[in-house]
């Protein structure tokens, strides 16, 4: 009953925001040319796939995986239902 204090809600929402921003920054670093170039080693391959290509797709998949985990933990409540509803008969 008294659990949904706006104060804790805000704190939780801020934490959620911080997590997604951190993930975004991580993604920016993951795909930044400087880091990408590190993995450009001609002749090296992972299961036959060139290292660079494997790195980009693995990094991409990792981002998606973390995003899915974070999204699953979102606690922010749904918006208040708008007053207008779809089916309206006079």
């Amino acid at each position: 009953m008294g659990d949904d204090h706006p104060v804790t809600e805000t704190a939780e929402a801020e934490r959620e925001t911080a997590r997604f921003v951190a993930l975004f920054l991580f993604g920016v670093i993951l795909f930044s040319p400087l880091v990408v170039r590190i993995f450009d080693v001609p002749g090296v391959s992972v299961f036959g796939i060139p290292l660079l290509y494997a790195y980009l797709f693995a990094g991409w998949a990792l981002l998606i995986l973390i995003a899915a985990r974070l999204a699953g933990r979102i606690m922010t409540p749904a918006p208040p239902k708008p007053r207008s509803s779809s089916a309206a008969e006079g």
């Binding site: 925001t17 993930l23 993604g27 920016v28 979102i74």
Partner: peptide
């Protein structure tokens, strides 16, 4: 395609 991926990481915000 990486751009939209990054953008959607901020989607919830």
């Amino acid at each position: 395609y990486l751009g939209p991926t990054l953008a959607f990481l901020l989607g919830w915000i």
